[in-house]
Amino acid sequence: MKPEYKIISDIVDENSRVLDVGCDDGTLMEFLKKNKNVDIRGIEISKEKVQACISKGLTVIEGNAEFDLKQFPNKSFDYVVLGQTLQAFINPEAVIRELLRVGKKAIVTIPNFGHWKVRLNLLIKGTMPMTKTLPHEWYNTPNIHMCTIKDFFKFSQKINFKIFKSLALINENVSNINNSNLLTKNLFSELGIFLIEKSNEN
């Protein structure tokens, strides 16, 4: 199980309604069901994984989050979870807007491209970085829109959403990210975990 699942579970309220976008084989869904007794749905692009989820008794639909979120009504979920897939979308901005329309809140996790190993990799080797969280070659990576934790903060201002909680994952340890430690967290975190909500102005 991925280390961030425990963190996501801590954020989610008991008995809430959750949508897991890109739910993979349903591991997080099962974990949240067991720990928080949530009413949870999933959407997943891979047929094999959808079949795996259904075989576990999970309610999952095959679909592409980039196009298929529109069938869900406004605020029909308390939380919409997007785990490490924002960077794989053609239009991450549109996806974030959809997450915040469908969910009262969204939990977004991103592999941090600002991590020192990534930076060093490019600096020393002069080739596109490959790390534990980013194992692909440049030509076969699904990650077409990589960003850093700092980028995500800037993104929140640009498309106007509120970040309620921002957490850094460093060697399976969790810590808060704030304005004063942003630069160091952006250098040392493998993963950023954000709880976000639509700003009232829009």
Binding site: R41, K47, V50, Q51, C53, I54, L58, T59, V60, I61, E62, G63, Q71, F72, P73, S76
Partner: peptide, 18 residues
């Protein structure tokens, strides 16, 4: 059908089999 069910928050799973 899936879309109509999701629009009313029904419990619906869906997969297209190859």
């Amino acid at each position: 059908i899936v879309i109509a069910l999701n629009a009313v928050g029904a419990d619906v799973a869906f997969v297209e089999i190859v």
